[in-house]
């Protein structure tokens, strides 16, 4: 059972950072929905555990977009030399055929930009909940706005993650040193 270096980093980007961010922002939405009412909640402060959870959510979101843009994306968009094996150049592989070009021109073009909305919105959501809990408790409009931005963060992350997974199935990012995790069973 083998995995190349690029496959490993791509898995960390998508499944660890992206996947856990998606779960975390969904959890935050559930938290916000449970407290979203016309009446202010009696609890004016935030627990240490909730603070840790929200900060971890933000860190995961930024780790996902930064690793995607500065580590995975350069591998994806690298220009293939003449006669090179296109399997190592996902963008070139996809755009070489009209039947697969849309995965780049639509999917990747959408994913690479919409993804950034998720950590920006999640940062704002976490900031309000951690630093301005009293205002969040006191104003119904604040609770509605924060919930709305959290929902958009989830949608943006789900869009980016979904396209990323599909594109990586069609033209996997691969290459680099190979790591063997387990001997093959004969």
């Amino acid at each position: 059972m083998e995995l190349t270096f690029r496959e490993l980093i791509t898995a960390i980007h998508g499944m660890l950072f992206g996947g856990f961010f998606l779960m975390a922002i969904f959890g935050a939405i559930v938290l916000l929905l449970s407290a979203h009412s016309d009446r202010p909640t009696p609890e004016p402060t935030i627990s240490r555990w909730q603070t840790f959870y929200l900060i971890a959510m933000v860190v995961l979101g930024w780790a996902a977009v930064l690793s995607g843009a500065y580590i995975i994306y350069p591998w994806y968009r690298a220009i293939a030399p003449a006669g090179a094996d296109l399997a190592l150049y996902p963008k070139a592989l996809l755009t070489a055929h009209p039947t697969t070009a849309g995965w780049h021109s639509f999917g990747m073009e959408w994913k690479e930009h919409v993804a950034w909305i998720a950590p920006m919105a999640a940062t704002m959501v976490a900031f309000v909940l951690v630093k301005h809990r009293a205002a969040w408790n006191a104003h119904r409009q604040v609770r509605a706005a924060v919930l709305g931005f959290a929902a958009v963060a989830f949608l943006a992350a789900a869009t980016a993650g979904g396209w990323g997974a599909m594109i990586n199935k069609k033209a996997p990012v691969q290459g680099g040193q190979t790591y063997q995790f387990m001997e093959s069973a004969k």
């Binding site: 919105a121 940062t123 704002m124 009293a134 205002a135 931005f149």
Partner: peptide
């Protein structure tokens, strides 16, 4: 108004 919403409004609008 013991809980001003200005800082939250700043965070929401700038986002």
């Amino acid at each position: 108004n013991p809980t001003p919403n200005g800082p939250v409004a700043a965070a929401v609008l700038s986002c």
